[in-house]
Amino acid sequence: MPRLEPITTDNVLAACAIAVRPDQAGLVAPVARSLAEAYVQPDVAWPRLIVDGDNPVGFLMAFFDVPWRDDDPTDLRSGLWRLNIDAAQQGKGYGRFAVESLAGEVRRRGGSRLLTTWVPGEHGPELFYRRLGFRLTGETSGDQVVGELEL
């Protein structure tokens, strides 16, 4: 059964070794970059290793109740910041597990929606997110579209 584990000194190298397929590499930041961002934003980032048994299979990083827009500090949102499933582990349900686990954490913290962003395109994750129930909000974040899952 897969589980989420905090990133520790014992598993950080395993987390950094997770790599998506080459055709996905330009669509999601490498885990090492995500961990660097988490290090400088410890009050925002929630990084987790996705483990099945003793095997690291993926990485996710989330945020909770973060101001979304500079012009409205009361617009607090929670979401999936990064999701990297190792190329050899894709198609086995680990991405779904990660999103559903994060949705449960958002609910536990009192939230009612989960956001994520993705780069649109042929090899992008839009179909994956849409199958999980995310809908486009019409917003963008840089070159990415914003999807929302009502919890």
Rank of each mutant, 00 (worst) to 15 (best):
M1R: 08
M1T: 05
M1E: 11
R3D: 12
L4D: 01
E5Q: 07
I7S: 13
T8A: 11
D10L: 15
N11L: 03
A15D: 15
C16L: 10
A17K: 14
I18M: 11
A19V: 14
A19W: 09
V20A: 15
V20L: 08
A25F: 11
A25I: 07
V28Y: 02
A29Y: 02
A29D: 07
A29V: 01
V31I: 01
A32Q: 10
L35F: 04
A36G: 06
A36C: 06
A38F: 02
V40K: 12
V40H: 05
P42M: 07
P42F: 10
W46V: 03
R48F: 00
I50D: 04
V51E: 04
D54M: 02
P56G: 12
P56Y: 03
V57C: 11
V57A: 11
G58K: 10
F59W: 01
L60D: 00
L60K: 04
M61G: 09
F63T: 10
F63K: 12
F63S: 11
F63I: 02
D70F: 08
D70Y: 07
D71Y: 14
D71K: 01
T74E: 11
T74D: 13
D75G: 09
S78M: 05
S78R: 10
L80A: 01
L80E: 04
L83K: 05
I85Y: 13
I85L: 09
A88M: 01
Q89S: 14
Q90A: 15
Q90V: 04
Q90E: 10
K92L: 10
K92A: 08
G93S: 11
R96P: 04
R96V: 05
F97A: 00
F97R: 02
A98R: 12
E100I: 12
E100V: 03
E100D: 02
S101F: 02
S101K: 10
L102W: 00
G104E: 05
R107I: 12
R107M: 13
R109I: 04
G110Y: 10
T116Q: 00
T116K: 00
T116H: 02
W118H: 06
V119G: 00
G121Y: 12
H123D: 03
E126A: 15
F128K: 03
F128R: 01
Y129F: 07
Y129T: 09
R131M: 07
L132D: 05
F134N: 08
R135A: 12
L136E: 09
G138Q: 09
S141L: 08
S141Y: 08
S141E: 05
D143G: 13
V145F: 12
V145D: 15
V146F: 08
E148Y: 06
L149E: 05
L149R: 08
L149A: 01
L151W: 00
L151N: 02
